[in-house]
Amino acid sequence: MAEDVRMETKDLSVYYGKHPGVRGVSLPVHDREITALIGPSGCGKTTFLRALNRMHDLNPIVRVEGQVLLDGEDIYDPGVDPVLIRRRVGMVFQRPTPFPTMNIFENVVAGLRLAGVKDRKQLQQAAERALKMAALWDEVKDRLHQPAVGLSGGQQQRLSIARALAVEPEVLLMDEPTSALDPVSTQAIEDLLTRLKENVTIVIVTHNMQQAARVSDRTAFFLDGELIEFGRTEQVFTNPKDPRTEAYITGRFG
């Protein structure tokens, strides 16, 4: 395994009942880079993403086969605790998911509270840091104790990002984080991603090819649950090796 590979899947398959949603995918995720997963809807990119922090454990009908290595350790090993994995590998979802019964501050520190952090100052520092990283601090610093559901959609999504960042994950998985947002908020989040990768490894699912081209370092193209092509983003978009990739990025299907 190369020195800078943070996460790697080996022959990963995910089954919904008998139906395979992802088939035999082997993909490296490089440290402190943004890896974009693209492909037409239903191609398995989200299913693949959710396998990277064991979210599929929550659904009894889903079965995962193969390996997902995080720093060389298989997260599906029987001895491995999914709770610890999810703390190291955070996730941001398609729609913002603020906890409606908590205020902005409590939303951001929810993960730290789980870990048992009680020190007020420590929590405040962490919240400020995470909100600054998510470029939300200036907008909410005066109303940290107001309900999180009062924020706009774009703000809510950045709050979700701040919440995921507050626990200082090594890897951040993002499942179409801008698909429910307006162009201005999308722009804000894209800017944010480029700055975030100094600290965090990011895997982002997007249905928007321009977005993948703009923000990612490497791109993986999925089709029908299989990984068709993976490489540096410039290469995948300017000189795809597989005709199916070319067909997709030139808009001939999907």
Partner: peptide
């Protein structure tokens, strides 16, 4: 880490 207590 108080993970054991949380699991308990």
């Amino acid at each position: 880490m108080n993970l054991r207590r949380r699991y308990l």
